[in-house]
Simulated scan of single mutants.
Amino acid sequence: MAAPVGYEKVDLTGKSLIVTGGGSGMGLEASLLLASRGAKVTVVDLAEENGRKTVARITEAGGTAQFVKADITNEDDAAAMVEAAVTAYGGLDGAFNNAGIIGAGGKISDYSLADWNKTLTINLTGAFVSLRAELRYMEKQGYGSIVNTASTAGLIAYPNLPAYVASKHGVVGLTKQVAVDYAPLGIRVNAILPGSTMTPLAEESFADPELKAKAESAQPIGRLGQPEEIAEMAAWLLSDASSFVVGGIFTVDGGVTAA
């Protein structure tokens, strides 16, 4: 039986795509998946060793990728990552703005301004700076798809994570605003909101088996997510299969926000 048309469109052959935070976790898995579907991937990360390892895994598997070291909060670096993708692969069809941090924990009364600024700068300003660089190119060509990584913390509160929750609510709002502004220009912008996912950072947090078991039991699905499950949503949103999807806020969270 032939595959439904939508599934055929998830083929990303020939698309030039940027993945920020591509050196580990969800960014790593997204980079590998997008390349396996035929995309030419520009892997962006501040951690050069990790980013180059991602590229090596892609090329060893027969895919196409390059590494760009960049600080997503730096305007020149963001412009350079777009230029690198365009120069190497002839354009920029899409981007997965995935880089971010959880940041420090604590209640507002004890929270330092330095910790607040760091988390907001990386998560929210970083998304803004990346989006602006990508959109400046895409608006000239008249098409493109951008996916931002927010979090279920963009919809609900998490104890003692004021900066993270505020920053991810900001990413959700920014995604909606940019989606409305740029849809008439043929550019689609959407966001993925992962729940608790077993990235390397999460593995450190859940090193205590009791804590991990508690986190798993809090998920209606009964387990934590895997980075490749987030990557699949990114692949769909970056593909032509999601051509009517604009300003979408997609929870991939095992049912946490539905409970």
Rank of each mutant, 00 (worst) to 15 (best):
E48A: 12
M233V: 15
I221E: 00
E8I: 15
V189S: 12
T20F: 03
R132S: 10
G38S: 11
V86E: 00
T152C: 13
G173A: 11
M198N: 06
K214R: 11
E203V: 15
T125P: 02
D45W: 11
S112Y: 06
A114R: 14
L120S: 10
K69A: 06
N97E: 09
T119G: 02
I156E: 10
V41P: 00
V165K: 05
V55F: 01
V172T: 06
A258K: 12
E210F: 00
L120V: 15
N74A: 13
T54C: 03
L120T: 14
V82S: 08
A3H: 11
V180N: 10
T121D: 06
N117W: 02
H169T: 03
S145N: 10
Y164G: 03
A153I: 04
G51A: 05
L185T: 02
Y89D: 06
N50Q: 12
S24L: 15
D76S: 14
E29Y: 02
K53E: 08
E134D: 12
F206Q: 00
G91H: 07
V180E: 13
A202I: 15
K176H: 09
A207N: 13
Y89K: 04
I108W: 05
E83V: 07
W236E: 02
A3L: 14
S145I: 01
A104E: 12
G27T: 06
D76M: 15
L131D: 07
G23Y: 01
A47T: 11
R52F: 02
K214L: 07
M81N: 05
N190V: 14
L46I: 15
E228C: 08
Y7F: 14
I146T: 05
Y164E: 07
T149P: 02
I187C: 00
A61L: 08
I72Q: 07
